[in-house]
Design a protein around this nucleic acid. Structure first.
Lengths: 126, 126
DNA sequence: GAGAAAACGAAAACGATTGTCAAAACTGGC
DNA sequence: GCCAGTTTTGACAATCGTTTTCGTTTTCTC
């Protein structure tokens, strides 16, 4: 639909890692785009609402986004230095989360699971 | 050491759930304390630095804190309605996270795992 | 007690995000 | 092609949690 949303989606696709809104905005501007920061936020919001992109929070509370390849439920292994992310699955973790919830009488269980580390490239570069 | 830090620690102890800094501040003020917001933040920072309390981020990026009973590494099952939290362990999840990290050449693996649900009390109350 | 160091708190500063609003781009009907 | 109405956009201001700054007060330490 909107051209701008496509622009943002594409900018996200060009990265393997999680990117912040401000970050994407800076990139697009430096590429010569006249896009506004508000629009970047709106596009990211729309994309994440429709489930097309994944969102998570960094330790300092900033929201970061990623266009994931896998459609199904998955988690991420994220490099804490360069932000590069790998999509991973963990059926056993899903089962564990559900079991733990049920065991304590909780219903409607969801979970957040992210693994952080230093990727091989960043480890050797230091 | 500091009286104020003790005050904050105690306020946290009185709750079973995760609380935000603003929230704790409001509580303390309404109890008649003359504590400042800055001090609440400083106390929470200090307590979390020393590992005495656990921190996590809500979906909207707010930091919430909890005084946990368990000293060892653990995770939380949190009610998304009332915020009540139960401390849970998942050795299999720890192993999974480490394995996944190693498998992709990542080092220095850490992970965040939180389970959300609706607790029995909140489910029946609706 | 005196003087130095640590803790406090009010107010200002900050940074990410959201709201406002007028201008610009797109619509379908003529 | 052109108009009225809707949608999208972007500059700017506002918000909100959090951090800094900077006097002031309290707490050691001798």
């Amino acid at each position: 639909m909107s051209t701008r949303r496509e622009t943002v989606r594409q900018a996200l696709n060009e990265s393997t890692g999680f990117r912040s809104a401000q970050d994407l905005y800076a990139d697009l501007r430096s590429e010569g785009s006249k896009i506004g920061l508000t629009t970047v936020y709106r596009a990211l919001q729309a994309l994440s609402d429709s489930g097309e992109i994944d969102v998570l929070r960094t330790d300092d509370g900033e929201a970061v986004y990623r266009a994931c390849i896998t459609d199904t439920h998955h988690h991420h292994l994220v490099c804490r230095t360069c932000g590069k992310a790998v999509e991973v699955e963990g059926p056993q973790v899903e089962r564990w989360a559900d079991a733990v919830g049920a065991q304590h009488g909780f219903t409607d269980i969801t979970h957040t699971v992210e693994v952080f580390g230093t990727c091989a490239a960043c480890a050797s570069g230091e």
